[in-house]
Design a protein around this nucleic acid. Structure first.
Lengths: 151, 151
DNA sequence: TGGTATTAGTTGAAAATGTAACTATCAACG
DNA sequence: CGTTGATAGTTACATTTTCAACTAATACCA
């Protein structure tokens, strides 16, 4: 395992501090715990959860809006929308001015599911937040929003 | 971005501050940028990258070790190991004392790939770190390690 | 007009992942 | 021994995601 091209490179790189890796692992760990609450009860995937929450939280919008707000690819959103439509959680409405668009809006059932999951999400987030001080929480979230290109 | 809709409902939950969501989005955004460097050049997936880096950074170990250190499911690791073996980036060696185990170790090619990608990763991480102050970086990484159940 | 480029969204095939069951090896205990 | 149970790793099958076309509607511009 000796490498003749070794140029005395300092081996300072530490995987456990590499941000993309850390973000993915912590994202998987935290999400997989929370996911059971909607997967078992509603048979929903993570992407479907995202779409539901965007509509529930920010009101009616197009698939394109969800794509850009959630930095999610349009095929993922398209399929999630179809699935949620099949569950009768949302409806589509063609824009009469520009018929390429369709506005998505939650049905009563969809809104009910959103509100129920919203409570669970709030509780789950509180448990996670409890691990840190208010200041750490603020910094953590601000950094993450910046990395996610939010704001 | 628009603020919460004050339509009457007490809407305290904010998606953009929900930790699992934030972690996933920021993880996807940061990883997808970095991923091109190993996907195009080595045809490697994210899981394969993980396995390669664990062996490169921490030395020979079993698949089980990688599973627990990277919090990755054993089927993912198993397939990544097979793929990396097919690329001649690693070899397996049955443990003579307990033949259920096999120790994985990088080949010369695997180590070369690791070192090349290591430089890119270090550079990439520096660019990300530059967005924050040293203190923010320290807090961010410490929080993430804790969420990931590291240490 | 008409031709070209964009944009919103869908679809099919290939790749990756998740889940559960499977093989093989070893340990513990009668 | 032999049975039971645990552990390392693989495999089969279903689901999800990715990637590259694709349709349909609109915008731009000569």
């Amino acid at each position: 395992m000796l490498d003749p091209m070794e140029t005395g490179e300092p081996e300072e790189f530490d995987l456990k501090n590499f941000l993309p890796y850390l973000l993915n692992i912590s994202g998987e760990v935290t999400s997989s715990g929370f996911q059971t609450s909607y997967k078992e009860e509603y048979g929903m995937t993570r992407t479907q959860w995202r779409v539901l929450f965007h509509l529930g939280r920010y009101g009616d919008m197009t698939a394109r809006d969800i794509c850009s707000r959630a930095r999610t690819h349009k095929t993922k959103v398209s399929r999630a929308v179809s699935a949620l439509e099949g569950m009768r959680f949302l409806k589509r409405q063609k824009d009469q001015n520009d018929r390429r668009f369709e506005t998505l809006c939650l049905t009563t059932d969809g809104d009910k599911a959103y509100k129920a999951l919203c409570r669970k999400a709030g509780q789950f987030d509180s448990e996670l937040s409890a691990k840190f001080t208010p200041k750490e929480n603020a910094i953590l979230r601000r950094c993450l929003r910046q990395l996610a290109d939010f704001d």
